[in-house]
Design a protein around this nucleic acid. Structure first.
Length: 115
DNA sequence: ATGCTGACGTCGC
DNA sequence: CGCGACGCCAGCA
């Protein structure tokens, strides 16, 4: 975490982790931020998603929700329900912009990747 | 160049 | 236990 290049890795890491999210699974900004080592920069993770849309490589940002499992970023999708539909298309049930059984579908990189 | 805001999360009161 | 403020990084005015 003392490496200056860490900053560049921040975005790249987020993209990498998000792309590694298995289909039908979801993760949270804080989980990624924590995996990166900074639980305080959860906001920046969200920004990374914004930049992810900028990336040519497809980044399943719809699989990234907040700590409560709420589709907070759904408003930023091309469609008003693009995020929810994308999640449902993967078998993830969503109700009231909230992921059903979020805990069960939660994919924690720090755990799944067994840091 | 400086300041504010923003797809969150944690700590403090 | 409930509400408020701060911290983080990057983009935009």
């Amino acid at each position: 975490m003392k490496d200056p290049r860490w900053k560049e890795d921040f975005f790249e890491k987020v993209f990498a982790v998000v792309r590694l999210i298995p289909e039908g699974r979801v993760t949270s900004y804080g989980a990624i931020a924590k995996y990166l080592g900074t639980g305080s920069s959860a906001r920046t993770v969200g920004w990374a998603m914004n930049a992810a849309h900028h990336q040519q490589e497809y980044v399943p940002a719809h699989r990234v929700v907040n700590r409560l499992g709420l589709l907070t970023g759904k408003a930023h999708f091309p469609g008003p329900d693009a995020m929810q539909e994308a999640l449902e298309a993967e078998g993830i049930k969503v109700s009231e912009d909230q992921v059903i059984e979020f805990e069960k579908l939660f994919w924690d990189p720090a755990v799944e990747l067994a840091l």
